[in-house]
């Protein structure tokens, strides 16, 4: 049985896009979490008493028991380095002039992914204290980028 073949003169590809544009609300908990960053320069979490778990970023509910979490706690601006990576390439695959250090910083029982700054690679160790560096109050928009980066604490 012969199979149909592609006409040798066929265009090989067709190009197009997915025009997906989004507007996201931050939600019930996100509103509180980002307002605290923007207005107070604070990082807040939410604490479930039953499960003894502090969610950072703050969550409206506890994923372990589904109860509403209503204890909002200031977890401070200093966390611990849980793990990190060094990025040598950008989104487009091009070599970065200045490699970027991205880390998971533990806060409460959760934490944030963010960039590290004011730090040399050879200073980094797991468990090191890292402190959030905020934009000045007037410049903060209510965004994760209101924190410029984390730097070694103290």
């Amino acid at each position: 049985m012969t199979l149909l073949e592609r006409d040798p003169k066929s265009p090989l590809t067709w190009s197009g896009n997915l025009p997906v544009t989004s507007r996201y609300t931050f939600g019930l908990a996100g509103e509180k979490f980002f307002r605290a960053i923007k207005d107070e320069g604070k990082i807040i979490g939410s604490y479930c008493k039953k499960c003894d778990h502090t969610y950072v970023p703050a969550s409206q509910f506890c994923e372990k028991c589904l109860a509403e979490v209503s204890d909002w706690v200031d977890v401070g601006t200093i966390g611990e380095l849980h793990t990190f990576t060094v990025l040598y390439e950008g989104y487009d695959g091009a070599r970065l002039v200045q490699p970027e250090i991205v880390a998971f910083i533990s806060l409460g029982d959760g934490g944030l992914i963010h960039r590290l700054g004011e730090i040399n690679l050879d200073e980094i160790y797991f468990g090191m204290p890292l402190e959030a560096v905020f934009l000045p109050e007037g410049q903060r928009q209510g965004s994760i980028l209101d924190i410029r980066y984390f730097k070694p604490a103290g």
């Binding site: 006409d7 003169k9 066929s10 989004s22 507007r23 609300t25």
Partner: peptide
């Protein structure tokens, strides 16, 4: 309320394949 914008920016180049490739060659 707080919100932000983002876009997927998905750009694709699809192989036309055997049959549709030939369909397009036919249209030409």
């Amino acid at each position: 309320i707080l919100f932000n914008y983002d876009e997927l920016n998905g750009k694709f180049s699809w192989d036309t394949g055997i049959a549709i490739g030939s369909y397009l060659a036919g249209l030409k």
